[in-house]
Amino acid sequence: MKFRIDIRRKEGLSDPEGMTTHKALHNLGYTDVTSAHFGRTIYLEIEAADPAAAAAEVETMCRQLLANPVIEDYDIGVVG
């Protein structure tokens, strides 16, 4: 199974890359942009007989290592 994990900074916490990109877009005239946020995407391939067990395992991996729950939120999706 292939999983896609999208990780991003929790709302309200400092995101300097997003803030700087937001400003750069404004400077280019895209003044309708109200926010920009950066994230990270991780693709995992897992040999899994049981899709539900694999999804639960990915969830655990996110909490343990892939995301920092103190500052990040994440979404897990199945891509194949």
């Binding site: 900074r9 300097p16 890359e17 803030m19 700087t20 920092n68 103190v70």
Partner: peptide
Amino acid sequence: CEAGLLPGALVANRDL
């Protein structure tokens, strides 16, 4: 911080 022994986290500097 990552180990959970201290609160919070450290991210990229404001001015990158």
